[in-house]
Structures are given as C-alpha cells and as structure tokens.
Design a protein around this nucleic acid. Structure first.
Lengths: 344, 344
DNA sequence: CATGATTTGGGTAACGGTACCCACTCTTAT
DNA sequence: ATAAGAGTGGGTACCGTTACCCAAATCATG
C-alpha cells in the first residue's frame, strides 16, 4: 500500500518555463489582462492545457482576488435557502467566482464567528442571508468586504439589500383569512436571541404586520401570538399552545412553511381537520407546500430571483460600485386547500 | 455619504511592533509552537487582544494550513444533509477549523468543478457526501488532499469511508413490508448521470437490495422499479407511474424520504388512502417523517453521527494518518402509520 | 569552572501569484 | 525625419504568514 504521496502542484512557474515565456506573461493570460498578443495567448494556453495547470486561488488572493463568494446561511435545513442558492449559482455560472456556504447558526455569537471566518479566508465578497447581527455590525462587515444583505429591511449606504416585501406578504395572508370570514386568527413567530427584537428582522416584520392588519380590521382583541421557532418542532409547539386557548383560533398564520408543517401536525393530532376546523397558512411557498396531501396556502417570494439579484449586485460591488442599491421582490399569495371559510 | 474605504487589516507585523517583539515570536504564539516563554506569550496575547488581530487564513495557507474543511454536498435541499453538517460542526467546535460547503450538483461534470474549486482554495481536507465521481477520480482527489467519502461503499486505501449500511437498511424496509403481508411491493430509485450505474452508489445499493430480497422471498415476478429522482417531484412522478400499472402495487418503498413525500402526494391524488390502499415507506428518517400528519415509516441512519465521524477521521488524516479507515453506521427501521397490512 | 544541552528569541527565505514599472519595437502624425 | 504613442514582453518587489536556521542566554553536569 502506497502512502498518498502528495505530488507537487503545477505552478505558474512550471507553465512559464514549459512555454518558454515569463511568469508575467502567464499571469496576464490567466487574468485576461491587457498586453498579450494572440500568438502569446495561444502559446500560454497550450502550455496550461498540457500541464493541467489551475491557478491557486489562495495565492492569487494575496495580491488580488480569490474568486470566492462567501454565503452565510442561518442553517441549511430550510429548503427556501436552496432556492436562493440556486439563483446565486446560476448568476455566477460563466464567471470564475464560486459560492462557498457557511452556516451561521442560531445565535449572534456563532454567526459572528462564521462571518469572521469568511473574512479571514479573504473572500471577495459576502452575502448574508437573514443575519441576526445588528446594523452596526453589518456595516462593519461591509467596510471590510463588499457585502449584500438578504432578507433585512434597514437602509444602509455601506451594503446592498435584497429583500422580499414581508409587510406586503404578511398583509396578503392576514387579509385573505379575514376575507374568508375568520376573526380568531393566530400567529406563530420566531424567537431570535437578541433581546431587542430588532424591527428589521423579517420575523418581527411579519409579526408586526399581522398585528397591524388585525387592528385595522377591528380585531385587536383577537390578536394571539405564539412565540416559538421557524421550524417543524417550533410550529408544532406553537400551534399546540394556540389550540389550547379558549376559544381556540379558527385560523393560524405561521410565519414560515417549516413552522406551518408543524402546525398542521398539531392540528391533526388534536383531532381537528384542516381546513374545516382550522385554516393554516405559511410563508415561503416551499416545494412541499404544493404537494396534494399538504396543499398549504403560502406566500411565494421567489427565492431564486433574490439569490440571483444578490449575486449580481455583489459582483458589481466587487467591480467597484460603492453606491448602495436596494432590490425588493413583491410576494404573491398562493391559495391552496389549507385555508377555507370558518365553519363555526 | 462616505465611500466604504477599506481600512488596512491588522497584520502579524503590526502585532510584532506593537508588542516590541519579532514576527517569529508572534507566529509561534498563534501557532502554539515550541520556544516561547510564558512572559512572551502573555505579552503577545495582550497585543493581539488590543489590536483585534486575526491571522489571515489565506496567507497561512501559503506555507501551512488554511484551517478550512471543504464539504461537498450534492445539494442542500435534502434536510438529511443538515444532520450531517450538524454532526460535523459539533466535531469541529473547539478547533480552529471551519467547514465550508459547496454544492456539487446533479452531474459528474459540475461536481468535478466544485471539488476542484475546493482544492484550488487550498482547503486542508475534503469531505465528499454521496459523490457521483468514479472511484478513480475519488482517489485522485485523495492524493491531492486528505479526503473522507460519505455514503459510498467501495474500499480504497487512499481515503476514509463513512457510510450507512444501505443494504441492511433496505432489507429492513422490504422485509417489514413482506411480513405485513405485501407481495406487490414497488420501488422508486434515483437516476444519476453516469451510464454505468456504479454498484457503490447508495441508490443503486438500495435498489439492488430491494430486488434481492424480493427474489429471496419468491417475489421475483412482482419486482417493479420506477427510475426517477430522490426529490418530491421525482417521488410523485415515480409513484404515478407505479400506480398506473395493473395490478397496482400495494406498497411503495421510496429510496429516500423526499421521494416518499412525493409518493404520498401521488397516492392521495389518485384517490387512494395510506396505508389502507397503499403502504409507503421512505429512507433517511427526516424530521418531517415524524409529523403526525405524515407518519412515514422510514429508515434512520443517524446523519449527525456520520457527520461527526467524518470530521474526526478527516482531522486525523490532516494530522498525518495515512492508513484507511472505514466507519459504518447500522440503520434502524422506524415504523409509523404509513405502512400496514394490505387490505386487498 | 569549563562544557554541553536546553531554552528562548530573532532573521530570513520561501509559498504562488499579481501589480507596477521599464524597455523595446513598430506605427502614426507632424 | 523625428517625436509621440500604442503594443508587447519581462523583471521584480510585495502580499502575510510559516519553516528553518542561527545566536545568545541560561542551566545542569562532572
């Protein structure tokens, strides 16, 4: 058995001597820089081909770029993030840039470590999805590296923002339920680890909009919020708490599909039917929501469009743009079988 | 509005001059190397603290390590991969290593690009989850960087393997269905882009085991396989095809939960009930399977244990181990409400 | 007390690229 | 004919860190 003897990697020097030119010439060719004749280009490209040379991104990064985009995701369990990644990947196709993901986690502290890890690896730019960090911290990051923030609403002149209009989306859901005739509409929201409940975090916007719309329709007394988490277990527990109340709600608006799935489970487990006894609606329009045995009413926010936009804006920033751009997607309601007029 | 003037990063030189010592001394301290007195250590650590210095991983990589682990996932839509990541993250906690994910995609070609991208960024080690690549290619990668391969079964002396015993798992499902009294048991498998259908890819093992067990129980004539994909849409389409056959199967074993969810949808849509008319079973025991309104019988393969083991083995390899280790997890069947004796 | 071993600190050449500058040739305009 | 400019190629310092080596100081030993 042979020990895996790591063979030396082909370097720019090898290419240069093989092609009988200077390393500068090779560098120019791989960077597509000005000052190489077609003949030189061919010659170098042939040598690169013959030796199977690939530049080492890390070494390039010491002077120039690493051609690496850092994507911070809170976690990878939510399939909605997969849509974002798909959009980003498509946007990056054809460029030399690659997207690397890192998991941010559930607290500000570990999220900070994750983003620092990206910076320390000299990524050329950072996309943060639904970060928990304060605006000050986001701007700090943006001063180190070109940055695009996804799913946050505050306005900054240091980074670009891409977001879904969560206020419009939440309004669509609550109004839909009200129009169906519901009055006792409850909401399941997400608990993050920040004490302040920043108004710019999407779950807080959805919750605040729910309350506003309820109030605007004279339903202030019917407001019922379960503070839990945007995942299956969270939705399940949140719904159980809501269903235990007397009188129990006739409709539940979960702030995310993942939570809505858990809410559906809680409703069934309580011996109730959807939508006959309780209507349930979610947010994100994940693939699962469309399945005939789930048919969850949900809000579509075009994750892949958001991911693509984030990629495009980030590349522009890397190229030198410094003005801040805000890109927002208008969500739409997808009505399915999980919502219907109340029977009681 | 101020343009984001990137301020120069604090370097090892800044720390050295601030602490009035040599850069060598600082380097030794951050590497925990031999040859520094306690007094020196304190002095340097204080300077690091005061300046907020963090070493640049990219520069470290030029001589030593980048403290980066590359994790190649086929995609991030399957929540099972999240379990793997959780296990890995936990294993890496307390070390300076960070896991970066890259999406491999659906074809060998893009997967190759993704893994090359990891190598070009000088990661210290690579974990490949359910790769499509040939064994030869995997060994090629392993010769460049310490490598651990997850969810593949072939034996190699160049990399470590971590896998679930898919043969045992598939056998559990099929035998369970046979014991319930089913005879017309169908299977939904996954189509990858390789022509050869390598015997070491997990979906091929599950499919082959299904056929073997059927044959061993005298059910060779009842073998019915739909070749589709391991995702919701794939399961939906595979199940539709199977349900169209005459006579239709009384049980469907989908090779992955994601596909099983789609199969459930197809069954309901056909006006049939689960499990009364058709039993459905999956593989992976994702969180969703446990929800009361899904109650999918599935195979649990402890993703976080596998992720943790992969991390441990990779760190050992980075530290210098060259012998190959194989770590396998024994799956267990979780019987839920989606499987029952056939009624017809 | 001389000698060798150990501890501690620092100097410096890499690592693999890129940015910047310079030199030379060949056009083109005056 | 000459100057200015464009096109083309190369030399080399530098990016931030580590590995390797050396020197000085301290310690243990016979």
């Amino acid at each position: 058995m042979v020990a895996p003897s790591r063979r030396r990697r082909v370097t720019i020097n090898d290419v240069a001597s093989h092609a009988q030119v200077s390393v500068t010439a090779v560098s120019k060719v791989i960077r597509n820089a000005y000052g190489v004749s077609p003949a030189m280009r061919d010659r170098v490209k042939t040598a690169i081909e013959e030796l199977g040379y690939r530049p080492q991104a890390v070494a390039r990064g010491m002077r120039g770029r690493t051609f690496t985009i850092g994507l911070m995701l809170p976690h990878i369990r939510n399939p909605f993030f997969a849509d974002i990644l798909d959009g980003l990947t498509e946007q990056l196709a054809g460029t030399d840039y690659r997207a690397f993901m890192i998991q941010g986690g559930a607290t500000r502290k570990v999220e900070r470590l994750a983003v620092d890890a990206l910076i320390d690896r000299q990524v050329d730019g950072i996309i943060m999805v639904a970060p928990l960090a304060s605006k000050a911290r986001l701007e700090e990051v943006a001063q180190e590296k070109p940055t695009v923030v996804l799913a946050r609403h505050e306005r900054s002149s240091f980074y670009d923002s891409v977001y879904d209009d969560d206020e419009a989306g939440a309004e669509l859901v609550v109004k839909h339920l009200i129009e169906l005739g519901h009055r006792r509409i409850a909401h399941i929201t997400h608990q993050d680890d920040s004490q302040a409940q920043p108004a710019d975090l999407l779950h807080n916007i959805r919750a605040a909009t729910y309350e506003r719309v309820m109030r605007e329709h004279g339903l202030a007394d019917e407001i019922a919020v379960a503070t839990s988490f945007y995942h299956e277990k969270g939705g399940y527990e949140g719904a159980r708490e809501l269903l235990d109340r007397d009188p129990r709600p006739t409709a539940i608006f979960a702030g995310a599909d993942q939570a809505a799935f858990g809410a559906l489970a809680a409703v069934y487990e309580a011996g109730l039917r959807v939508p006959a006894d309780v209507s349930v609606a979610g947010y994100d329009n994940t693939h699962l929501a469309a399945l005939p045995n789930i048919t969850l009413t949900s809000v579509d926010q075009e994750g892949s469009v958001m991911g693509g936009a984030a990629g495009k804006l980030l590349l522009e920033r890397i190229e030198g743009r410094t003005s801040a751009v805000r890109f927002s997607v208008t969500p739409s309601l997808v009505v399915r079988g999980s919502t219907a007029p109340p029977t009681s």
